[in-house]
Design a binder for these strands. Structure first.
Length: 510
RNA sequence: GGUGCGGUAGCCAAGUGGUUAGGCACCGGUUUGCAAAACCGGCACACGUGGGUUCAAAUCCCAUCCGCACCUCCA
């Protein structure tokens, strides 16, 4: 019997290593959240879904997880945007943060234990800056706008240890903005005077705002202490953001800041990073208008979190914009829900004992949860976890089919029914760490139906009439007429599911 | 230039020394009035390229090519 071990890739050491919590049984994690300057795009969704899965998985593994994901609500871009919108900056950022929260909820992201905002932690930020000055790691500089405070990068010897950069290699890339009076081009701002824009908080150096990096040092220390287990974010944060966080935090108190640094790969469009500046971004809302919330989550989980993931955007002949990858994921989600439904139906009146029916399917049902967790143990191998779900779904369908076929053999049928019941539980257990199949089935079918009717501008009443007309034709054995109606409906993307008595329909994805 | 991530069958995507995850597409079958869905079976001499190590490499070593990203705000 081996102890299950969580293994995760650590950017700091560049290898996959076991998670050894600072306090046994507890995991503290801090993830850099969004700067709420604009609506969240699908790339944000990917990163936060990764950490949501990490949190769920660790919880299922028995850890008491404290998850902190901050909200950056103080930032130059927010100021600029809020002015365009004619709103006070904090009102603007509060409004945008609310939209982020709604989108994340739609993606099924569990709310972190703490969602600190920069604007609510100014005193903590000031404290850490003062401490850095005392220790000789930061200095005050006079600027035309007032007094700035900078972190003296060369005063922190290990600088570069996360991004694995040589401090001297950085010189060529560093730039000095107009009006800055840094002693060294590598130094970065801890505090900047507000100047004429006037937005800021009083400090020993006059009215100003915190630099971007120091907020995370202050908030993580406040909520998780000087030393915590996991620090995460998107890959673009490795340098300079996380490098600077390490410098500030470890210069201000005893190192290390975090044991394990995790970074998610980019979502790409045509092999290029999805980003605001390239203008190739798709917002989470854009996707959720067309696709079900769970399909986007499944799409993210289909590939490993550290690798790139391409997000296809396709324009159809009729002018509709579709996301083929997410559509594909949605079909998979449908398959999973349908399989769970089949198992649920087959499990009706099931006896308690499982018996010896269907040994192959029984093994898949029995092992599903373990196999999902084993996969996630290996640096969150979500695609293997999804493969397990697909095998489970297939087994569930087989079991349901067996229940149908075993009508004449009551004992065997009961055994199959019991197995179906076990399969339903297996779905719940196997999906828990992934955060999938969250909804009641009827909700899932109702909402996808409504969404597809809406996006295609089709009235379900008309479809019902057509289907009824076809049912009559079938009853009259007028198959030519029935098939003609079916062709008509298929052209609209309607899939017909005939039984001897009736017909149900559903709209296809895409 | 420095530092990373990636290059796996028609496509998406795991695997990281030796019984080839999973999915899509495709082909045959069960089922069906015919279909769809579901299920069964098939499916591919795959591992960027060139060397090397090994009884054995997609997997280790060396070299090299291509894509992307970071080095400046960015999940």
């Amino acid at each position: 019997m081996t102890t299950p071990t969580t293994r995760l890739y650590n950017t700091l050491t560049r290898r996959i290593e076991p998670l050894v919590p600072i306090q046994p049984g507890k995991v503290s994690m801090y993830v850099c959240g969004p700067t709420v300057q604009d609506v969240a795009h699908a790339g944000h969704g990917r990163t936060y879904t990764t950490f949501d899965v990490l949190r769920r998985y660790l919880t299922v593994r028995g850890f008491a997880v404290t998850y902190v994901r901050n909200i950056t609500d103080v930032d130059d871009k927010i100021l600029a945007k809020s002015r365009e919108a004619g709103e006070p900056p904090l009102e603007y950022s509060r409004r945008i943060a609310k939209i982020h929260a709604e989108d994340y909820a739609a993606l099924g992201l569990a709310i972190p234990e703490h969602e600190p905002r920069v604007s609510e932690h100014i005193p903590d930020i000031l404290e850490i800056i003062e401490r850095l000055i005392e220790r000789g790691h930061a200095y005050v500089a006079e600027t035309p706008k007032g007094q700035d405070v900078y972190f003296a990068v060369r005063s922190f010897a290990p600088y570069g240890k996360l991004s694995h950069r040589e401090i001297n290699d950085l010189l060529s890339g560093a730039r000095i903005e107009v009006g800055e009076t840094k002693r060294d081009s590598l130094d970065f701002a801890l505090w900047k005077a507000s100047g004429k824009d006037g937005w800021g908080w009083p400090s020993p150096w006059g009215v100003g705002r915190p630099g971007w990096h120091v907020e995370c040092s202050a908030m993580s220390m406040k909520l998780l202490g000087e030393h915590f287990d996991i620090h995460g974010g998107g890959m673009d944060l490795i340098f300079p953001h996380h490098e600077n966080e390490i410098a500030q935090s470890e210069a201000a108190h005893t190192p290390p800041l975090a044991n394990l640094w995790m970074h998610g790969g980019f979502l790409q469009v045509d092999s290029e990073k999805m980003s605001k500046s390239l203008g190739n971004f798709v917002t989470i809302r854009d996707v959720l208008v067309r696709n079900d919330r769970e399909s986007l989550r499944y799409f993210y989980l289909g590939s490993h979190y550290r690798g790139p993931l391409n997000f296809d955007v396709e324009k159809r002949d009729d002018g509709r914009i579709v996301f083929p990858g997410v559509d594909e994921a949605e079909r998979r989600i449908e398959y999973l829900y349908a399989a769970r439904d089949a198992a649920t139906l087959a499990a009706a009146d099931a006896p308690a004992a499982i018996g010896k029916a269907l040994p192959q399917q029984a093994a898949i049902v029995r092992e599903a949860k373990t196999r999902v967790l084993d996969a996630l143990d290996q640096d969150l191998n979500t695609s293997v976890a999804l493969a397990v779900l697909n095998e489970l779904a297939k087994a569930a369908n087989e079991i349901a089919m067996a229940v149908q076929k075993l009508r004449k053999d009551k004992a065997q049928q009961d055994a199959a029914r019991a197995l179906a019941a076990a399969a339903v539980h297996a779905f719940a257990d196997a999906c828990a760490p992934l955060g999938l199949l969250h909804s009641a089935s009827e909700d899932f079918w109702a909402r996808t139906k409504a969404q597809r009717l809406r996006t295609r501008n089709i009235d379900s009443v008309i479809l019902d009439q057509k289907v009824l007309e076809r049912t009559r034709a079938r009853q009259e054995k007028n198959f030519a007429r029935a098939d003609a109606i079916r062709d008509e409906l298929v052209a609209l993307g309607v899939e017909l599911l005939d039984t001897p008595e009736t017909t149900t329909w559903r709209l296809n994805v895409g």
